Simulated assay, not measured.
Amino acid sequence: MADSASAGARSALFNQSIEKAFVVLGLFDAHHSELSLSEIARLTEMSMGSVQRITHTLEQLGYLVRVAQSRKYRIGIGVLRVGAQYLEANLLIDCANPYLSDLSNRCLETVSLTEPCGLDMVYVARFTSRHYIPIHMPIGSRVPMFCTASGRAYLSALDDAALHDHLERSERIAHTANTVTEIEDLVEIVQQCRQRGLAWNNAEYFRGDINIAAPVINASGQPVAAVHVTAPASRWQLENAIDTLGPPLLECARAITQAARTRR
């Protein structure tokens, strides 16, 4: 649950019951595919009565399902309805899809579109290579900005003050032996990304996973998304990926930027 400081700064219009429901839904992931009432109460620090009311309501709405064998809850397919509504209503995704598909066909690698959410980037579109890819990132997956190509592409389009603020607030965990976590080093990398016009990461989030990315900019000059190409280390080295995949990637990002501005 949110700390008391942030809670104290909230508007009187803030509805804590709705917040609690989303906190419960947010518990379910690959590590917690099924949870009992007592486990939910422990993880959320809510009373058992609150947990019972929330889970019952979410079950009735189709957002949770109770598993008969274990009597535990799992996420319900109804959650996908909300996600689908976002994807259907998102003009940027609609504009981007033809260009992402074309880039994937040209590069023969997986191409994705991500959008910012807090300190993360979220996958909102993805065209998968027919070649082997070791890591599957479904739509809705989140990755931290500080150590991923898409995140660094987004950060490279911010001013220095916003960049430093973001890095200071980030939980800079070393996900692999290659992960850069020091702010000074990260600022230097992002500045290099600005100079080259595209960003990269070399197995900093997943081992063996190289990515290069470019930002999508709105009419006000602010970053709103990033396009990235996944280049597995089994097929690519970083500089080779930048030299070979970088030009068509930049062309794709610019085309999406222009198409989105035109349609707005």
Rank of each mutant, 00 (worst) to 15 (best):
S4M: 14
L13D: 09
F14A: 14
Q16Y: 11
K20E: 11
A21L: 05
L27V: 04
A30V: 11
H31N: 08
E39T: 00
M46L: 13
T57M: 13
E59I: 07
V65P: 06
Q69Y: 09
Q69A: 15
Y73N: 10
I75Y: 07
V79M: 11
L80P: 02
V82E: 12
Q85R: 15
L87N: 00
A89N: 15
A89S: 15
L92F: 03
L92K: 03
I93S: 02
D94S: 15
T110Q: 04
T114G: 05
T114C: 05
C117S: 15
G118M: 05
L119H: 05
L119M: 10
D120W: 07
M121Y: 07
V122L: 14
Y123G: 01
F127W: 05
R130I: 03
P134W: 03
I135H: 08
H136Q: 12
P144F: 01
A153L: 07
H166D: 05
E168N: 15
E168S: 12
T176C: 04
N178R: 13
E182R: 07
V187M: 11
I189S: 03
I189V: 12
I189G: 05
Q191L: 14
C193I: 02
N202C: 14
I210N: 01
I210P: 00
G221L: 09
V224G: 04
A225V: 09
V227M: 12
H228Q: 10
T230N: 11
A233L: 06
E239H: 09
A241D: 06
L245E: 07
L245D: 09
L250V: 13
L250Q: 13
R254D: 13
A255L: 02
Q258K: 08
